[in-house]
């Protein structure tokens, strides 16, 4: 069984400074893969290169064996990758359901339609997606007035609109209450399981990471320093060292997980 996504030697340098250096990994089908690391480790840069928001300096990204490096995000999306953003990006002037309808319209290639009304298009499908992420009661609210956690859930609904094979989630639970976090990740895990798709996510909350990730990768200063099961990564000396600054939290969480 070949990998859904394969990354080979991905590198990004900004004016000579290496932000991401020779990163290689693969994502298997129906796998929840966490990418962790301290701030500035290059996680978002990595994501941006995967989906084409940033051109890679070197390296290749393959989706189902097809090279997608250098493709613009919209083409990568059409090939089956959906993503959420660290800083949420939604359409502030639209309602919640319209945000999802927009993605559905794009998926069904009806962007240049100037005849029918958009607010009726794919309404039921959009509502189903909202229900999936628990946002159906807020469907008619303006996106601009949503709480941050709700925006994150909305982004997930948008990212699922075209039935992707791979979800890229950049800090999916940032800004959420602890309870919400677990809920959202459980939801993600269920979707991954049910639809047999893969998810690659970055996350600060180790609780979330250790309870939901099938596998964990650690990025530090642009380099992948660990890649393995939760247990392996947790006991990795190098990882411990990297997290020494925030080590207490790391250990506490780890202990809590044991308990």
């Amino acid at each position: 069984m070949s990998a859904v996504l394969e990354v080979r030697g991905l590198t990004k340098s900004f004016g000579g400074v290496l932000a991401v250096s020779n990163v290689s990994f693969s994502v298997a089908k129906a796998e929840m893969l966490a990418l962790i690391g301290p701030n500035g480790a290059g996680k978002t840069t990595c994501f941006n290169m995967l989906m084409g928001q940033l051109p890679a300096t070197a390296g290749d990204v393959l989706l189902h064996g097809e090279v997608i490096t250098g493709m613009p995000p919209r083409k990568v999306w059409r090939r089956g990758i959906g993503r959420t953003f660290q800083i949420t990006a939604t359409y502030a002037s639209m309602t919640v359901v319209e945000n999802v309808q927009m993605a559905l319209l794009s998926h069904h290639k009806r962007l240049f339609d100037v005849r029918r009304f958009a607010h009726r298009a794919y309404y039921d499908e959009a509502m189903q997606l909202l229900e999936l992420v628990g946002m159906q009661t807020q469907s008619e609210r303006a996106c601009a007035v949503l709480a941050y956690g709700d925006l994150k859930r909305l982004e997930l609904a948008i990212a699922l609109a075209h039935d992707p094979q791979l979800l890229l989630m950049d800090e999916p639970t940032a800004g959420m209450a602890p309870k919400e976090r677990i809920g959202l990740m459980q939801l993600t895990a269920d979707i991954v399981e049910e639809r047999q798709i893969s998810a690659l996510f970055t996350e600060h909350d180790m609780d979330v990471v250790f309870s939901h990730a099938h596998r964990v990768m650690v990025l530090n200063r642009g380099e992948l320093i660990a890649n393995g099961s939760v247990e392996d990564v947790r006991s990795d000396a190098q990882v411990q060292e990297v997290y020494l600054g925030g080590g207490s939290l790391f250990n506490e969480v780890a202990e809590g997980d044991h308990a």
Binding site: M102, H107, L111, D113, V114, I158, H162
Partner: peptide
């Protein structure tokens, strides 16, 4: 005015509101 309410009008507003999200959901 009608165009504003059609998918094209929505795509135009989407491109304005968040080009990042629009591009990441297949909108050129």
């Amino acid at each position: 005015r009608h165009m504003a309410h059609t998918p094209f009008g929505y795509a135009l507003r989407a491109s304005r509101d968040s080009a990042r999200q629009a591009e990441a959901t297949g909108i050129h």
